[in-house]
Design a binder for these strands. Structure first.
Lengths: 157, 157
DNA sequence: AAAGATTGACTGCTCAATCTTC
DNA sequence: GAAGATTGAGCAGTCAATCTTT
């Protein structure tokens, strides 16, 4: 039982959704120039910090995408030589995804423009003192799905 | 030139994207139960506040969607009887979209659950005093201090 | 020529089902 | 049976091109 959202609450909700949408649109457009989708970029960025590679499920969870969606993207990226998939030695079920040198190179090529864009569209528009507040508040939002309710996780059926 | 993003800045960026993604996923899933996509829900909500109806371009701009995407959704919704399209009397080019009684009814039916979900996933997780800060900060990001509806839109090429 | 809107081809993604290995 | 991953069907959305009216 929850009452209607107050004006401020509604505004906050809209602001979040709109800000997220706008940022996403801009980023997507820029990445497109490099032939990358957003998920692909996230894959590159995430794997760059994981020299040992990652399992598909773990990677999917980290990126908040479905496993099948990740498989699709991984196939595209592998065909382009950006990542390599290999079956794990210990667990024959598991597939480990790793960044190739080409993938790392592309990431390095894309990163500066990406950072500049995020700075221009997001960081530079938020008061530095407010930034920490925003970050902390949004972290609470991403925090694990609260008990009692059907967790809105990206779990596949 | 812009330097790399600091840790805090990166975290803020990441938090925004992740929070937006999670919220979107949860909302999408819930709306699906009513056979609505997110855009369709936004159409209902927006038109409910516009008794006179809206032109396709204006509506698309308000929703931050492309015109062709909106046309697609409008077709689906019209087939389902949720909205009605009619050519404007003054301008033969313009199409006015309006909510039907059935559309209004469905909106009323969906709204409570939607509000509850947003409250649970977003509002209740943010400290009330921080909420205003977050709202204001994100408003800066969307880049429209003017409250007129002439926001920089998703104009089609 | 410009503005409003739609259409068609194509992509990315989700869901449900399947296969394999544990 | 459960976990890791993939496949195939189908939907929502983008882009480019087109049509009509101004």
């Amino acid at each position: 039982m929850s009452s209607a959202l107050s004006h401020d609450e509604l505004e906050a909700y809209f602001a979040l959704r709109t800000a997220g949408d706008r940022l996403q649109r801009a980023v997507t457009g820029q990445l497109r120039e490099h032939g990358l989708t957003e998920v692909q970029f996230s894959v590159l960025a995430t794997l760059a910090a994981e020299p040992g590679g990652l399992g598909m499920t773990d990677l999917a969870r980290a990126l908040v995408v479905t496993k099948s969606g990740l498989t699709y993207q991984a196939t595209q990226m592998e065909a382009r030589g950006l990542v390599a998939r290999s079956t794990s030695a210990e667990d024959e079920r598991a597939v480990r995804v790793e960044l190739t040198p080409a993938g790392l190179r592309l990431l390095a090529e894309v990163m500066p423009g990406h950072v500049a864009l995020v700075r221009e569209l997001l960081i530079d528009r938020i008061d530095p003192t407010a930034l920490a507040t925003v970050r902390d508040a949004l972290r609470q939002v991403t925090g694990e799905p609260r008990n009692s309710r059907s967790g809105p996780g990206a779990t596949e059926r």
